[in-house]
């Protein structure tokens, strides 16, 4: 589904990604872990198409298409979803209206008709229940006045509405209490299928108790330096990142 080869990216002349290689198949869950500043969030930003980052080398293929060649909206329409680490508040733009626009523009991109008001409302009802998001929040301005947990649940609600093929959860667990974490994880697990894939970027092993990864990758200094199964996450939790740094530096 996703094939990243030798990806290099920089921001303001500072090289952050220094040759990432990653293959993701449908049905898989990949966790990307790593110390602060290792490039985790840069990787998600580059995949989603943030303009500030310049890709200097390498390729990213998504479902046989050149992802780097697409603008952010087309990446989303092709099925890439980024759950933001810090969801943006957009006063005055209603959550529901913007999702309807997003769904309809995506449908138009695929040559499909717009969704009917009735179907849309049914979808909102079903998906907001999934993440236990109050219907009132769904109709408020995007993230405005939402608590941290509500913002993250709103990300998963949007993900549920848009039914992406590849979801990237960028530190979705940061700042979440255990109840919110459970709800978010339940949402992600319910949406998981053999047709889609998930990248979980996280600092902590805790989230991986709830969203169990097939592979764990350790990102350090702009490269994936170690890959293993879910037990690697436990090892990292126990021993921290220093042993990996030592391994690399020696």
């Amino acid at each position: 589904m996703l094939s990243i080869k030798n990806l290099h990216a920089k921001i303001d002349d500072k090289e952050i990604l220094k040759g990432i290689n990653l293959e993701i198949k449908a049905g898989e869950v990949h966790a990307i872990m790593g110390p602060n500043g290792s490039g985790k969030s840069t990787l998600s930003a580059v995949l989603a198409g943030r303009e500030e980052y310049e890709v200097t080398e390498g390729t990213v293929n998504f479902l046989e298409k050149d992802l780097l060649d697409m603008n952010p909206e087309d990446r989303a329409r092709e099925g890439v979803f980024l759950a933001f680490q810090y969801p943006i508040e957009i006063p005055g733009v209603s959550n529901i209206n913007f999702l309807k626009t997003a769904i309809n523009e995506t449908r138009a991109y695929h040559g499909k008709e717009t969704i009917t008001a009735k179907d849309f409302l049914a979808l909102v009802k079903e998906k907001s229940a999934l993440v236990e998001l109050d219907a009132k929040l769904a109709s408020r301005s995007v993230n405005e006045g939402f608590s941290g947990g509500e913002k993250k649940r709103n990300e998963i609600f949007q993900m549920a509405m848009l039914e992406p093929k590849l979801s990237i959860l960028d530190e979705t667990d940061s700042g979440l209490d255990i109840d919110a974490l459970r709800i978010v994880a339940k949402g992600v697990n319910t949406l998981k299928s053999s047709e889609n894939a998930t990248i979980v970027i996280t600092h902590y092993q805790r989230l991986l108790d709830y969203i169990v990864p097939d592979f764990v990758h350790v990102l350090y200094n702009g490269r994936i330096v170690k890959t293993g199964g879910k037990e690697l996450a436990l090892e990292l939790e126990e021993k921290g990142y220093d042993w990996i740094k030592e391994e690399i530096n020696n």
Binding site: E73, F81, F84, V93, A102, I103, E105, L162
Partner: peptide, 10 residues
């Protein structure tokens, strides 16, 4: 905010 909306397919 514009990027956020774009990232949802708008």
């Amino acid at each position: 905010a514009i990027f956020y909306l774009q990232a949802r397919g708008i």
